[in-house]
Design a protein around this nucleic acid. Structure first.
Length: 112
DNA sequence: CCTATGACGGATG
DNA sequence: GCATCCGCCATAG
């Protein structure tokens, strides 16, 4: 079976797992998810994945840097509602990150 | 191969 | 806080 870039698929799977690991009532940024999955520069990749298969993931828990919602229009409003339903509070247009940001466990091999 | 686009992010003015 | 520019990653045409 071939791979045609298993590498990329591996990464995608890691990102998917990272997103799924965000507990209810907590959030994470695109960059944070990417880093947790081993792609420090893959924030954009995370966004692309969510756009593609967000339906199967807790997409509402992924925000832009600073806790800002990047989705526009109705989608953005829905995201905010969903988060508020989980008990997450906003400060203006952003989520209070220090309080609701999910801390991913350190990956193997990483020195703290 | 090259260009354009996007749920990104950081730097700069 | 807002507008721009640039770098990064993946896809589509």
């Amino acid at each position: 079976m071939q791979k045609r870039s298993d590498f990329s698929q591996e990464r995608t799977a890691a990102i998917r797992r990272a997103i799924r690991s965000i507990p209810r009532g907590k959030v994470a940024t695109y960059g944070q998810v990417a880093a947790a999955a081993g792609c420090p520069a893959g924030a954009r990749r995370v966004a692309f994945l969510l756009h593609r298969e967000g339906d199967a993931l807790p997409w509402q828990r992924v925000l832009g840097a600073g806790g800002r919602i990047r989705l526009q229009g109705a989608s953005g409003r829905e995201q905010r509602l969903r988060l508020e339903m989980e008990g997450i509070l906003f400060r203006g247009r952003r989520v209070d990150l220090p309080r609701f940001q999910h801390i991913f466990p350190h990956r193997k091999g990483e020195t703290s």
